[in-house]
Amino acid sequence: MNVFRLTGDLSHLAAIIILLLKIWKSRSCAGISGKSQILFAIVFTTRYLDLLTSFISLYNTSMKLIYVGCAYATVYLIYVKFRATYDGNHDSFRVEFLIVPVGGLAVLINHSFAPLEILWTFSIYLESVAILPQLFMISKTGEAETITTHYLFCLGLYRALYLFNWVWRFYFEGFFDMIAIVAGLVQTVLYCDFFYLYVTKVLKGKKLSLPA
C-alpha cells in the first residue's frame, strides 16, 4: 500500500458514493448511462470472485464488498426504483461491441488460462472501456449535470492514481502487472478529453456543455 494506491481507492469510492447519492437525493437518474453502470457491476462481479478463494486483507475484502454492493445498488436505482427517470433513448451505445471483443481478448491474452484468471482479465479489460456508454451519452445530449462531472472526474482520477501506484510498485517492489498497466493506460487516456473540459469549464463554475 502506498499513497497513490490509497488515494486511488478513495477516489474510486468517492465516485461510487457521489453517483449513488446524486441519484438518491434527486430521485432521478437523468443523464446517467445505465449501460455503463451494468458494465461496472459485471466488472466488479467477475473481478471479485476471488473473495471466495483467497483472503488478502480486511481492507481488501471490505472495499471489494462495498464496491460490488454499491454497483448493484446503483443498477437497482436506475432500472427499478427510478426507472421512470432513466433516459434510455440517449443511452444507445451498443455494449455488445465492447463485451464481445473484450471477452475474446481476455481468452487470448492472460496470465494463466484458468477460469478465475480469465474472468479477472476480462474485468480489467472491460473496466478500461466501461465508461464509454456514459461518455457517448454526454456527447449525444451535449451536456452533463455538474454533479455527474464530479463523479466522472473522481472515477477517471482513480485509474490515473493507480498508474502512479504501478510506477511506485515497480520501482520499490519490483512488482508489475502488464495487463493491468496497459488497460489502466487505455482507461486513463479515454478520460483525457473529459479532464480537459472539467478543468476549463466545470472548475471555473460553468456547466459542462458541448458545442452543437
Binding site: R5, D9, H12, R47, D50, T53, S54, I56, S57, N60, M63, K64, Y67, N110, H111, S112, A114, L116, E117, W120, Y162, N165, G174, F175, F176, D177, M178, A180
Partner: peptide, 10 residues
C-alpha cells in the same frame, strides 16, 4: 513479477 493471481489490488 508479472504473473497470475491472487491479485492484491482493487
Amino acid at each position: 513479477a508479472d504473473e497470475a493471481g491472487p491479485h492484491d489490488e482493487l
